[in-house]
Structures are given as C-alpha cells and as structure tokens.
C-alpha cells in the first residue's frame, strides 16, 4: 500500500514537472500558432514594398528590444488600437467629405489572450531581439527631462504631429499614436527609431530626418513622458 502511494507520488511529481516544462515552452508555441500568420517572427530575407503592403501586423522579430514587457502582458489581454489607420494606413482609408478618412469597416480587432498565455507570449516576444546592433543602446539619457523646446520640435519644427496623435485629439493618423509610447516602448527604441526608422523597419512610410543629437534626446524625452499625461499640452 505504501509502495502504491509512493508510486502515485512519483508519477504525480513527474506529471507536474512535465506540465511546468510544457508551460515554459508555451510562449513560443503561442507565437507560432496564433501570431505568425500576421506578424514576422523572423527577419525577412529581403524587405520589399510588397512586404509593407501585405503584412497584417507589425514585424515582431525585434519585439524584445522594442516593447516593455509589463505593457505587453497587459495589452495582449486587453488590446486597444495603437495605429488609428491600421497596420498600413494606405489599405485602410477612403475618400471623406473633404479629406481622406479612416475606413473603420476594414480595421480588424486584435485577438485577446488569457493572462497565462499573455505572460508566456510576452516572455517569448522579449526573447526576439532581432539582428545585433539594430537599436542604439545607452545613447539616450534617461535622467534628462524634455526641455520646453521639445513640444515645439514635435509639433512644428520636425512635424512629428503631422502623422502621430498624442491623445489630445490632435495629430495625424497615418502613424501609431504616441500617447502610450512611453509605457509601450523602450526609450532606446524610441531614440533609435526616431533617428532612423528605415534601419529598423525598412520601407516604412516614416522618413529619416536629419535630427541633431540634442533634438533626438529632447524628442525621445518628450515622447516617453507623454504616457504620464492625460493630455499632451
């Protein structure tokens, strides 16, 4: 009888161990089964305009150097639209009364994950760090606050708000909203993408501007702190 209990305990422990192992591997399995049809999980060999037009979601092969994990876990359970005109604005617009408008009927809601799946998927996503040197790490001075000039740079001098909204009903719609960027994105990613979007997302419809180091620091600080404000004023 004791032997039987011992045997059952050993089998139980073995089952538990295998469950833990399976759970740890679930993140990659979730990415492959639920994400890969819309997102590139590995770097495409050659990026052409067709890739930009045809992809159904942003590339995720560098998600680990892009996103903040706590945000990922939260967002995957309760996704809120980040890109007001979809993953590629051109395929989600129509003629409005005067100007082009977003064709809401073409936008698809992102799937929701359970908490356990979101945590596992976030872990797996954070392991996707893309090619070496994609992001410039350590260049952005996290301790320095945005100067009063930063908003002027964002809105007028560098024209960021022509394409990006900041949660105050202002700003364009062809790029992702930036009012949650500080919560969503790693500061080094914001810095690097602002400096050279084409290096990170080749072919994307955001131009590479010649921005001075000082302005880059200021713009990054400004974008990071937008998350802490209800409205960007």
């Amino acid at each position: 009888m004791i032997k039987a209990h011992l045997l059952a305990a050993i089998i139980g422990a073995g089952f538990l161990a295998s469950s833990v192992t399976t759970f740890a591997a679930d993140g990659s399995a979730i990415l492959q089964s639920q994400c890969a049809s819309c997102h590139a999980l590995t770097q495409p060999e050659k990026v052409t305009l067709d890739h930009i037009w045809e992809r159904k979601g942003p590339d995720l092969y560098y998600a680990g150097v892009k996103f903040n994990k706590p945000w990922l876990v939260k967002w995957l359970q309760d996704p809120v639209r980040i890109r007001p005109s979809g993953v590629f604005y051109r395929t989600h617009i129509k003629k409005g009364e005067k100007a082009d408008v977003v064709d809401e009927s073409t936008l698809i809601d992102h799937m929701k994950l359970t908490q356990a799946d979101a945590e596992a998927a976030a872990d797996a996503l954070m392991a996707l760090t893309g090619p070496e040197g994609l992001i410039e790490t350590g260049k952005f001075d996290k301790d320095k606050k945005a100067s009063p000039m930063a908003k002027m740079l964002f809105v007028k001098l560098r024209g960021c708000s022509a394409c990006h909204s900041t949660g105050d009903g202002k700003g364009g719609l062809s790029g992702p909203e930036l009012q949650t960027a500080g919560e969503r994105l790693q500061p080094d990613f914001i810095y690097s993408y602002t400096k050279d979007p084409q290096k990170i997302d080749k072919g994307v419809w955001m131009p590479k501007l010649a921005i001075s180091e000082q302005d880059l620091q200021n713009l990054t600080s400004y974008i990071v702190q937008l998350s802490g404000k209800k409205e960007a004023k």
Partner: peptide, 27 residues
C-alpha cells in the same frame, strides 16, 4: 505610382489633391 501610394498619399491624398488622411491635422 506605387511609391506615391506608399509614402505620399498619407498627406497628399488618394486623389493627389492635398486632402490626405493627415491633412486635417496639419498647420
């Protein structure tokens, strides 16, 4: 045309008339 549709339409519009998606928000 493909380049225009990818990069220019966001501001200059589907009809190429300056009334793009972002134009409403531009100074």
């Amino acid at each position: 045309e493909r380049l225009y549709d990818t990069y220019c339409v966001q501001c200059h519009g589907m009809n190429r008339d300056g009334n793009g998606l972002n134009s409403t928000y531009m100074s």
